[in-house]
Design a protein around this nucleic acid. Structure first.
Lengths: 226, 226, 226, 226
DNA sequence: CATGAATGAGTATTCATTCAT
DNA sequence: TATGAATGAATACTCATTCAT
């Protein structure tokens, strides 16, 4: 029968994990606001409500802390955003829903921040970009490609290369709104405008991949660029 | 009859302009490699082969030097890249050419570096993003929109909102290769792959905007994602 | 009956207050020797036996450190010098005592240093001059004016404007010795010379303000200026 | 018959002396405004309308230039201020006139600036204080002492130690106004207030040194200190 | 395990001085 | 002689990291 651990030596991970999480959340706020270089460990310690020494008890260095933060964002927060993709009646309705969700996702503060940090720190932290891509875009593309494969099998759509098609759709969703938000340029991002883009994207996609479709329909009310 | 001044002799001190350029090029290398925050004025001085004092004789501050570097990149180097967009026999050939050029452009080291720096420093230097957008993507989109308008007038294409269409085309060109390069992820960027993307993009575009087109043609040889 | 807390243990971290004082003393030596602009934070750190970082843990900036140093000098060290002004038998003895103390005070290294720094930095730190004046000359003048008012009430002296009279007396005490020491000019400052000035000042003062005094007495042994 | 000097080699000192003067005047403005440490050679060059190189053709270093500026101020500008001391009908009128002139002098911007700079730089430039003292206060005291000696000889005044008496008078003139202006403290310096101080100073002086004078007269309208 | 004082190499920037033109 | 571009050491201040408590 093993001896109980001495009460002064908490090798049980409960308190430890909680504090680690507390630090990660504080660090996240600071990294999101100031980027990697712009965030100081003092700020982070203050923001997380711990001392600087404690920071170093949980993470070897600023880089380690940063990597852990990105990992956690990518692995825990991003995936939740994909759970909402459901099944609608028609492929068109489904794709419009996916496009709308994708635009909302890629223009969310969290996604914009992750994109910014990963783009700027990719050279310093190559592993982060890899991770982010796999749990973010790659996963979205995979889900969509699977759906396209299923539609192709049932004859609703005709998609010879579902992965490329999914990538085209994913990229198309960044038209205008996401692209400009990433550079912090002013752009109209209200639901109507997002819906307009989502419909345009879907139409373009279906005009290529819908089985036996007729002539393409022009968009009903053109929207002037800001 | 007085001799004309030699065209290569500027009326401002020649050494001054040359040294300014020398500094800008040195600074460019460092900024490109380390970003704005990560580059130090000492590094830049060493990289440009001048003293720190000289740096400040030519540029008031690090921010000024950085802005001058981005301005020069955006205003002098980027525009040259658009001069190659010529006119081919058919709209399809023209669009494939444009897509190919766009992919080459957006995956060039200069564009990737500018994109990275502007995405990461947009909050600190909002003006730079504006400038870059105007002389880069905005200009490309404008040229393409004008071309689409002309094709619509002559009846070759049917494009009700040429600006949105141009934006969709511009975004589509970032599929797979540009998107991954921006995160420094490994991706096949040889001419064959670029051509494949260019054709896929063009097909998708024409399936929507070509007047009286028949059924869309599926892509001939699928390409597996890395 | 609970034991009193040890008088040497302040409730704020002991090391903190001690180190703060250690820094202030080191800074004082450097500021006194080189003035505000002439003192560098590196010098001060070395002189105080701490690192530059520690300096900034205790004081936000050089200006803050400087202000704290002047404040401490003015508020803690200067006032002690006024406690010695006691009451002698006759007004003449009292005034000679005050004049002697005043000369000693204004020619003390601390006073000379404060005067020098405040005169040179008055434009940069207006608040310091105000503080110094209030806790130094202003206070001395006030005490003397009160004393003159009391003597006037009891009929010993006749001083219609005690504040102006006190200012005249205060200024007179700077004759020869203080005035020259402020410019670091060589001057005899041994007790005999100080006593000579104190008597001359007192005589001049009483010849104006003593009630019903007789003819003024010339000074007994003239002193040649250096 | 000597050959004319080549026009390109101006070894005649005319232009040289003029430029030297031009530099000194420009330097004076900057030194007066910013002090020794606060003035930069670039500022001075700009202010004097010459290049930095030229500065060093005329003065070995910043310290040399500074010393030359103080010398010139002390030797050329200060003495002019003493020429105004004339002879009035009575000793009282003369002394009031001298006191008034002295207060105006010591509160003039030039005097205040010189005093400030010399007090703050006395340790660095001991020679300057010596020079300034000799051509300024020392000279004034000497002139006054001579006048007091003459009055003593003719029996108008009784001044056993004219130099000490002159120093007392000189110091007295710094009461209130000069003392506070030196610390840039707010003080009423309009002519009425200066006249009040001049009369108080003179009365105090004559009460001690006037031959066979009667009881001292109190000041007519007391002035409340600011 | 938590703390935060201490560190010192690092940052952007200034400036007296030199020197080729 | 006059210039001003170039220099590099110095300045105030920051910050990731360590370590005694």
């Amino acid at each position: 029968m093993p001896a109980a651990p001495p009460p002064t030596a908490p090798d049980l991970p409960g308190a430890s994990a909680a504090k680690r999480q507390q630090i990660l959340e504080g660090a996240g706020r600071i990294f999101a606001a100031h980027g990697y270089e712009g965030a100081s460990m003092s700020q982070i310690a203050r923001g997380a409500g711990v001392s600087k020494g404690t920071l170093y008890n949980y993470f070897d260095s600023k880089a380690t802390l940063f990597a852990a933060f990105i990992q956690q964002c990518a692995c825990e927060k991003l995936p939740r955003l994909f759970e909402t993709i459901g099944e609608e009646r028609t492929p068109e309705d489904t794709l419009v829903g996916i496009a709308t969700a994708m635009i909302h996702l890629t223009t969310s503060p969290l996604s914009l921040m992750l994109n910014r940090i990963i783009v700027s720190e990719a050279a310093t932290f190559p592993h982060l970009a890899e991770t982010f891509w796999q749990v973010g875009p790659q996963k979205a593309i995979g889900i969509l490609a699977d759906w396209l494969t299923a539609r192709t099998r049932e004859g609703t759509l005709t998609v010879p290369d579902p992965v490329l098609a999914a990538e085209l759709f994913y990229t198309l969703c960044q038209t205008r709104i996401t692209g400009r938000k990433r550079m912090q340029l002013p752009v109209d991002s209200d639901p109507d405008h997002i819906a307009l883009i989502a419909r345009a994207v879907t139409r373009m996609f279906l005009n290529t991949f819908q089985t036996g479709k007729g002539p393409p329909v022009p968009e009903p009310h053109p929207h002037v660029t800001a």
